[in-house]
Write a protein that binds this DNA or RNA. Structure first.
Lengths: 133, 133
DNA sequence: CCGTATCCCTGGAGATACTG
DNA sequence: CAGTATCTCCAGGGATACGG
């Protein structure tokens, strides 16, 4: 007990495993984007591919598969003339949206801070944009 | 107009770059844990190392460095007899805590869902506790 | 249109050992 | 105590090409 340092030790992280699982999920490349672009409604493969610039079909397919497996996204094949597949967020998937939102918010703040800091050391960089480190 | 599919296209994700930046941050192994364990107050290197079982000093050090650089964590060296260093969340870092919380929450739900699904194939668990692990 | 299959390659993470 | 230094390993992701 001697150690006063232990005063405010955080609880054991409500459950590390869930954290890991969920982080592994949206840790995957493009995953947050996929969820985000599904947040406005169902979307087809090609649409997503077009929505998200720079994602390869391989990765998109892989992420989608994972998401479906984990129960975050639903997949519906529609037997139309040209075969089409609709992906949509499940209820659980929808819970991810505010999370992503929050992450983006923090990301923005991080950027602003950094810009503020670099503008302080230099003079007024009227043209010098923050060269991403 | 033809395309009705474009009906509810999500906005271009408020800023992809911030997302990427932030995800890269807490995408790093153990990062969420570090932030979490700092959320209850300042903590020293060894304490964190002890708090988080399985993390190597190398990784802990690396993550900490990143977090300090990004402005999420502050580092204070105290010139005491045995040299000690205190890490703490900055204000921005504190904003990450609810995010992690939310992620954990979703992770739990994911797990419950999965348990529920597998229990369906087995028998009826009338007393299904969510074995937090 | 909706993916899967390959190859390659990089960075991140574990283990271990060592310094101020 | 608080890290840094190496080394190795491999999953994950980009590019490209092909199949249903």
């Amino acid at each position: 007990m001697a150690l006063r340092r232990r005063k405010n030790k955080a609880p054991p992280l409500d459950g590390e495993c869930p954290l890991m699982a969920c982080m592994k999920l949206l840790g995957g490349a493009w995953t947050p984007n996929i969820v985000w672009y599904l947040s406005a409604g169902p979307r087809r493969f090609s649409e997503l591919r077009h929505d998200i610039p720079g994602v390869s079909s391989k990765v998109l397919s892989a992420r989608l598969k994972e998401l479906v497996e984990k129960g975050v996204v639903s997949r519906e094949v529609r037997p139309t003339s040209p075969p089409s597949v609709e992906y949509a967020l499940t209820e659980i998937g929808a819970q991810l949206v505010p999370v992503i939102d929050a992450i983006v918010a923090v990301g923005k703040r991080l950027k602003e801070e950094k810009a503020r800091a670099s503008s302080r050391s230099r003079q007024a960089p009227d043209r010098l944009v923050l060269a991403e480190d």
